[in-house]
Amino acid sequence: MSTTPHIRAASAEWAKLRSLRAPRMLGGTAVVLAALSSAVFILSFPVTQRTALDRAPLTDVLTASVLGVDVAAIVLVVFAAWFVGIEFRTGAITEALLRLPRRSAVITAKALVIAAVTVLTAVVAAVALTVVAVALAAALTGTSWSAALTAAVSPEHLRLLFGSALMPVVFALLAAFAAFAFGSMAAGVLGALGLIVASMLAGWLPAGAAAVVAPVLPLAAVHTISGAAEAGSTEFLGIVPAVIVLAAWVAIGWILAAWRLRRRDF
């Protein structure tokens, strides 16, 4: 027998993930929906931004396409919540608990696998939607392919794109922790989506309240890291504080999940 419980558990969960069909379907769905929705966001630009595409700045059009990552995030939240929730729905979680000396090892293992899958899927989704965005932007804004591609690979756009890819990773982890804490897929989905909605609604609070609430929510940290939050806005934190906020949310989520799982009777 070899290795620590956490490594054994992560290895086992990885093997489990590879055998199940649903994760592949959900991952593929995330990539496809990211690409499709980026196209929708570009095509709806004249309606949402009240500017015709042929008169719109290329960078604004490409920026709109990045919202496709948010769509991928929702699908990956569902994946993460399902990957945990199904263990409780079937009772299969007990099979893992019977083989590990500490219950928290299951949580860490699932989190590592979910993080790896969501990072990979988010990157693929980001690349896919960029291909779509470059093609549409070049075709609809009267810009050349090379100019559109140059804009798409500029440091600013890449920061926005891959910084936004943090959203599916962080919220998928939070969905997993919520599913562990409350023993259901629904809790995972509602918990993560609730945080996303709360982050959006925080900006509608009175200025004083928004300045206090918005920066501590995970979406503000993601927007800061990606550059979507401009300096001086209520969401802007600074890179290091933003990383700390995200790490804190992940840590708090893990602690809550471990505390609840430890106390649960099966």
């Binding site: 027998m1 070899s2 290795t3 054994r8 558990a9 290895s11 086992a12 969960e13 093997a15 489990k16 590879r18 055998s19 199940l20 069909r21 649903a22 199904i86 263990e87 079937t90 009772g91 299969a92 007990t94 099979e95 893992a96 019977l98 083989r99 590990l100």
Partner: peptide, 28 residues
């Protein structure tokens, strides 16, 4: 232990379930 057949993930294959259990148990 065997506590009930419902405590199996339906989407796994027979071999994958045993592979998962073996890895979790620390077998090389």
């Amino acid at each position: 232990s065997l506590l009930g057949t419902e405590r199996l993930l339906p989407g796994l294959t027979v071999h994958a379930h045993l592979e998962w259990a073996a890895r979790l148990s620390g077998l090389n």
